[in-house]
Amino acid sequence: MDCKKAENLIMKYMDGELSPEDAQLLNDHIKLCEKCREEFFVFDAMMQNAAEVSKEVIRAPEGFEKAVMSKIHTEEEKQYAYSRNDRLRMICISIILCFFAIGYFLIKNKEALIAKLYEYPAFAQYLNEVVPFSQNIQSYENSALNAVEGVFSYADRLLSVSGMFLLAFIVIGVCVYGVLRFRGNRHR
């Protein structure tokens, strides 16, 4: 048997997988080969020391569980505070988006809405007071109102173009809010 094979058998010995036949072969070889014999003794001593070390019972320090649980509580509190802030932020975003949506709806359907409101006497009276007043203002501040009207018509065009985007923002906002709320509940 050559030294390469002897080395493999030493490794098998260290793995605890050396068969009696192989043990005999290795024994015969190291009797004759000084280099392999020395190698075997170094590895064997290593094995014995490793076995000694592995027998030593290592215990986690006192209060280990408490320390872990306390860290987990701290982390959960942070997580909860974070998710609460997230929720607050999302509520604000949702409210703003809702205002945009309502504003868009009112601007888009203002003619139809005014016509509908005229059907109710109380609103008709109110509108009769407001509309002449606005017409009055218009007569005096025509140029200013034109500018305002310009802004409104621009907003109207913009909103009709980006209506779908607005709707998408609302849907995304609601989804994010839902996810954050779910996360918050899970971590509690």
């Binding site: 070390v53 019972v57 290592i58 215990r59 986690a60 320090p61 280990f64 569980e65 872990v68 649980m69 987990i72 509690r188």
Partner: peptide, 24 residues
Amino acid sequence: DGNEADFEELVKRYKNLVYSVVLR
């Protein structure tokens, strides 16, 4: 499911193993 006592039990069971592996 949020039962802390169960997690604490897991820590008790495995703390020595984990600490020993890490320390070595």
